[in-house]
Write a protein that binds this DNA or RNA. Structure first.
Lengths: 141, 141
DNA sequence: GTGTAAAGCGTGCATATGCGCCTAAGCAAG
DNA sequence: CTTGCTTAGGCGCATATGCACGCTTTACAC
């Protein structure tokens, strides 16, 4: 997998490529848990901000609302997230189930190893800088 | 679309969120051209490194080979990229067609505006730093 | 109360993403 | 020439991504 120089000074393309690579790295570490990185992120996020509506959760996770709706399917199917009725007839209330909480705890060591091995290769300081820059982008654009 | 603080110190999650947001920004600007950001990136990339095989192009663009194979479908369908026979009976040779070259030129002003407006909001210097950090990640991990 | 706007969510469509498995073609050792 | 490894690519499956459109429910002005 040796490649020539990356093609283009496009900020977006560079970020997309980096995102793909990093996702692959984390996914490989999380594979034994049966969770993808995206799903682990959703569980962690819901654990912090739930109970919450789909739209609210989508905003927090920086996703399109319809993407969120569909991303929840495999998680509700597997009983990791419960989507009960909300305070309205419109809203649905998302909560992390006990199985979901347990699954997070099982997956955490694998996530930590992914995070750690990435920091070892890329450098912990640059990794932190990159993360903060990405967080700022997600909030600002 | 105002959100609370982003959830998690996970490098991967932060990068994925930023990637989604930025892709949305560029996609909105490129919408009049009928190209998505990803497709514009593929055309630009192929223009630089083509003719090339699918696997070779996938490596350069930091994609899975199967993802590349499928991403080419709408582009070959629309005649922007030609997938002729390669030097082997196995390999296929990807080239940018004249229509593809023309499409890039048509789209360029829209891409430039997306790039520029992002830099205005996020800051040109941080944007460059972020792009270089992302490029390094794509090559290193 | 009623009409209208807005909020919350779902669905259809098209593309994006990558893993596992498969086939075909080249290539080297015997 | 045959056996076996490697390379190039396709396809099925499942999830990810978001736009356009539509539906139901609520909020609000009047």
């Amino acid at each position: 997998m040796d490649r020539p120089a990356p093609v283009s000074p496009c900020h977006c393309l560079a970020l997309r490529q980096a995102s793909r690579r990093l996702t692959q790295h984390y996914d490989q570490h999380l594979a034994p848990t049966g969770l993808r990185t995206s799903q682990y992120g959703l569980l962690r996020g819901l654990g912090r901000v739930g109970p919450i509506s789909i739209n609210g959760f989508a905003d927090i996770m920086v996703m399109d609302r319809t993407t969120m709706g569909r991303a929840l399917h495999p998680l509700t199917r597997d009983g990791l997230i419960a989507a009960g009725p909300g305070r309205d007839g419109r809203t649905r209330s998302l909560t992390l189930t006990e199985a979901g909480q347990k699954r997070i705890e099982e997956a955490q060591p694998f996530w930590e190893q992914a995070q750690r091995t990435f920091e070892e290769r890329y450098g912990a300081v640059p990794a932190g800088d990159l993360r903060r820059a990405a967080e700022r982008l997600a909030l600002s654009v």
